[in-house]
Design a protein around this nucleic acid. Sequence first.
RNA 1: GGGCACGUAGCUCAGUGGGAGAGCGCUGCCUUCACACGGCAGAGGUCAGAGGUUCGAUACCUCUCGUGCCCACCA
Length: 905
Amino acid sequence: MPQLPKAYDPAAVESALYEDWRAAGLFHAEPDDDGEPFSIVIPPPNVTGSLHVGHALDNTIQDVIIRRARMQGRNAVWIPGTDHAGIATQNVVERQLAAEGTDRHELGRDAFLERVWSWRETSGGQILDQLEKLGASADWDREVFTFDAPRSAAVREVFVALYEQGLIYRGERLINWCIRCHTALSDIEVEHEDETGELARFVYPLADEAAVPAEVLAAVGDEDGGLVRAPGGQLGIEVATTRTETMLGDTAVAVHPADPRYRTVVGLEVRHPFQDRTFTVVADEYVDPSFGSGAVKITPAHDPNDHAIAERHALDVIDIMDDTGRLTEVVGERFAGQDRLAARGSVKDALGEAGLLVRVDEHEHSVGHCSRCGTVIEPRLSLQWFVAMRQLADKAARAVRDGRTVFVPQSRTGPFLEWLDDLHDWCISRQIWWGHRIPAWYGPNGQIRVSREDIHEEGWVQDEDVLDTWFSSQLWPFSVFGWPERTPELETWFPTSVLVTGYDINTFWVSRMLMISLWFTDQVPFHVVHNHGLVRDEHGKKMSKSFGNVIDPLDLVDTYGADATRFALLRSAAPGADVPLAEEWVEGTKRFANKLWNVGGFVLSRLGETVDGSPRQEGLPPLADLPLEDRWVLSRLYAAHIATDAAYDAYDWATVCRTLFHFLWDEVADWYVEAVKLRIYGDDAAAVTTARRVGRFVFEHVLRLLHPVMPFVTETLWRELTGAAGGRDSLMVADWPHADDDWHDPHAEDGFAVLQDLVTELNRFRSQNGIAPSKRFPVVVTSEEPALLATEGPLVSSLAGLTELRVVEALTDAPGTTTVRFGAGQAQVSLAGLIDVDAELARLDRELARARDDLARVEGKLANDGFTSRAPAEVVAREREKRVEAADAIAGLQERIAALTALTG
RNA sequence: GGGCACGUAGCUCAGUGGGAGAGCGCUGCCUUCACACGGCAGAGGUCAGAGGUUCGAUACCUCUCGUGCCCACCA
């Protein structure tokens, strides 16, 4: 008799199976393979990355989808690859250089890039190896990189084409500057956080107090007066700021034109306290008169709003800091050279000394941080390259509104469209070295040429900057297939079928892929965007190193196996929700793998064809010939199949897992396996054969349905059961199963439910009376289903551990017996030597109380005229039935209590 | 400031206009011939709170409270 080890040991099978699949070429697809094309491109992980649970979830989902598509006979390909991740990667290598006591400038650009490439060769991309441990069935022969030659060619083409179309331009604008990364950032690379800071209120003194009209002077100090006296006595206008140091670059104070307090002040000159200059009070609609003093200091070089005001009023623009965030000499000797955050304090102190500081308040405001390094971002005026987004965004929005690309869950659509609607131009130039160099050359006389070919002419130099890393990522869905070449891969697999990603990069990446793909190919890049949730800890908290709640998926794979890890992630991945995960939950799913393993062990040893050497028979015997439990399990399989298939189609992984878990454990293992033992251990050869065929069939069907989620354990069992050697006979490429409508059999389900109910009630009776499971006893029943119970008596006896189940028309009121009620009747048990009567009496009392509650509830309902007259007839009828049942139950219980009481005397 | 989710058993979550569910945890019994990574039973919830619609609300509507997230150039 074939035997499996008692416990499933993932480590013993996973890597060998994976290598077997790979060696057989099962991960690889060609454009001219059979089947309808189906494609997924991986969201390319950064080469700096190592696998975290978010990747594990994202790639497990992709693997599930691609494995099922493959089984469904599609020409399915999953393209793997990595992202060069400009700033992130440069930072990693710069840190190494710093540890070596050098930096990139000392090394020089070419040597630095060489260094990054060599780092990438050796330790970049380990994340893809880690994906293999999870079972990822990506087509490794097709691995691509955002910075390899074909992808770089695509980048060059897109940049030049957009420039020629006037959608890429160079201009001086306010951008986000990271003083640590020394580069410009796009708006979405800035993360805003609410922080409590100091709001300093201070006074700009009037340059010429004599120029102030008398009535204004008279109002000073009044609540409605515009001008104030500073603590030091100077007359001036009060302003407020959280970035006090920016006052060193102020070139105006603005008030609202309709603000009566300042009507006469507009046009007056104020004096800069620390610099030898004055500037004007201007009127601008932007100012909110109800906020603070109603006057705003204007720093055109370091605030977007201020910059806009400056343009309207032709104000001077003074850039006060250098690339590293230190104040330059333009601010004056006193503050030059200070870091901008240090200057914040020293400027405040200086204002106090000058008697101009009115007061300092605590103030909640939001501060932008670099998404790469966390440094506080400084808005700066800077000459950069931009993409004009409006036309691209409109085209993308139209595609989404038309449903050419749909979001799953659908609730992500709204926020996405809103975001597209107010999109600003995209700053794409970065002042770093690692990335696609901007294909612009500057001539000796200031000319600019943007070119598909490098320019080597005398006097022409290429722009030093590189492109935002997302500029190349946005091309991914078509660049991976070789665009702009019209390759067979591109023709076959583009647009891709589905993009799987967390919703957190919808703006960074998904939006840009949609826009650029539609612009250049006139096609959406993917038909579906499946947004899964973000993996969090078991209390829904973000995983982070500082909380110490990070789970390493590779540890999980080592400890519990890839299947358990995958299942644990997926079972929590309900549509639209974040994904909580705790290590002990993975232990739970390992138990499920083990359960599956042991059911497999049973099927193999008791139901396998090799048990008696008879030839394997495919398919099922005629349904009409099958006993009740077989028809029941097939009907349940049908339901499980329909629910599972629908959930797969809906990207509802939690439901896929829940359905299969429940069917396999609660129905197949707990009931069907137990039920089938009656035949297996009996001596009816024909019944044994039938049981084997049906049992195997059902189990193999489950293996197929479960394979995309738990590829390793299902494949291992499949090979054991079918004798398949692997390769092309693998479960991985077996047909996706089909559920036959004929299996659906409500009659069998109802019938088996009667048996389940009776068995459960007898078990409860047993448990509550402390009757050992090994103790067998006879039972007499009366039931609405006498024929069913007569036929299935042996099955019930087998399941409930009875010596005999005898069906009678009516129970005789025999002394020394008790009655166990079940849904379809009553079972009578002789008590002699079986139970503790007092315990049974106590149990009956509890049951009686419950039955009385039931009756009261139903009667209350039926006493309600509204209910009886307005509720649907069948609902009322059901309640009437319940009333009868409850009354019967009470009567029955009372009789039994009386009988037992009489017995004890 | 705007928007969107969510609040069901100790924990994490399903669910439905008419009898409160699962997994884990907890309690009792059981080493029964697939499985102790197991089996059989059990305890535990005024389905956040208040109002409304309805014959009937955990479910639909409104509000309140709480939690989470996204967006936002609020000096």
